[in-house]
């Protein structure tokens, strides 16, 4: 199991961001959690880290409905970036629209990153959730 040092939470809802941070604090890992208000800000940070050779997040929690750049648009851009590491992206959404599920599956098929789809509400994050892709790979 490799260490998880950096986690991005991309969500426009402050309550959700609070909740994520709280749930992550429950599992005793020494990770740094970064919050982003929308996809655009998250993407800009990822790109900045690539250019400045800083570490990329191992795990990203991603909301779908956001202003400026929503979750899908973020993914569209993200999977085109040249990233060697395999990143775990957890889509956290309240959407029960079947179209959104299909979109998830199509992204999942298109990329080497591991993308999960989780319906709200969530109450707890297990350590294993953050290492899923280790098991998968």
């Amino acid at each position: 199991m490799r260490d998880i040092k950096t986690i991005f939470v991309i969500d426009d809802d402050p309550i959700m961001r609070f909740g994520m941070r709280k749930m992550l604090s429950k599992i005793s890992i020494k990770s740094e959690v970064f919050e982003f208000n929308n996809g655009q800000l998250g993407l800009e940070e990822v790109m900045a880290r690539i250019t400045s050779n800083k570490v990329l997040p191992e795990v990203i929690f991603l909301d779908i409905n956001m202003p400026i750049l929503n979750g899908w648009d973020f993914l569209e851009e993200f999977i085109r970036l040249e990233i060697k590491e395999r990143i775990l992206i957890n889509i956290i959404t309240s959407s029960i629209d079947p179209n959104d599920r299909e979109k998830w599956l199509s992204f999942r098929a298109k990329t080497n990153h591991h993308i999960d789809f989780v319906n709200k509400p969530i109450y707890k994050i297990e350590l294993n959730d953050l290492h899923k892709m280790d098991l998968a790979s």
Binding site: D13, I15, G19, N65, K120, P121, Y123
Partner: peptide, 8 residues
């Protein structure tokens, strides 16, 4: 989304 927040 609101009820999910409540629930959480």
């Amino acid at each position: 989304s609101h009820t999910a927040n409540f629930s959480m």
